[in-house]
Design a protein around this nucleic acid. Structure first.
Lengths: 109, 109
DNA sequence: ATCTTATATCGCAAATATACGATTAATAAA
DNA sequence: TTTATTAATCGTATATTTGCGATATAAGAT
């Protein structure tokens, strides 16, 4: 694109969009699902479950971490990721807050 | 990318990701916010509020409509968009459902 | 010290998204 | 019928994302 216009929107809009972007790929949804089901540190199991190369999974994990949706600690040759439930709750809260005006009214089209 | 791997994931994951992708831009969040505040059909007002060209806004509206998050009817020289609250509720439901395992437990990292 | 194992990072190619101006389409107004 | 007016679509350039193989890194095992 010619210019990046994202900066011209409010911080809330940018943050929400950023978080949504992290969720905008089935691989990352699948990763989160695995993490949620375990709800404990798991390591290379994610790669074996997903139909993607190790490097690709690592990249997706990095994006989820950057977005704050998961936490991760490196522990030598293996690392450990967990869901950051607080971030999810925040996302849900912000998300609802933005749109919870007049929800009961009927749309006209 | 060489190959599109999105198809190798489940339908639920794909749908959720698709919906998240529609939310993954501050302009579209801003559009939804405006629509939510009005909760009635508004037309060119969106263009005048956003810092984007008319054609760009139209494209964003199209994406939101494709994702099912808004409804739109063309009415001659002006069109009319509304939030599809049902779609939002569904998104919220699916989203929570995917991750509501063991939410109360503490993550380990 | 070398080998193994698990994971991150780099570099690249291909696909998709973003943004705009120009054009088109479709109705209302004159 | 001609002339606005409003919004969709087309064509396009540029930016970003996706995905992989190759390589690097970091610790444990031998």
């Amino acid at each position: 694109m010619a210019i990046n216009k994202k900066q011209s929107f409010g911080k809330k809009e940018q943050d929400l969009a950023e978080c949504a972007k992290a969720l905008a790929h089935p691989a990352r949804i699948a990763i989160l699902k695995v993490l949620a089901q375990h709800n404990k540190c798991i390591c290379g199991e994610i790669v074996s479950v997903l139909p993607l190369a190790q490097s690709t999974v690592s990249q997706h994990l990095k994006e989820l971490k950057n977005a704050g949706l998961i936490t991760g600690t490196v522990d030598g040759p293996r690392s450990c990721y967990c869901i950051n439930w607080k971030a999810f709750e925040k996302f849900n809260r912000e998300f609802s807050f933005l749109f919870n005006h007049l929800k009961t009214e009927q749309a006209c089209c």
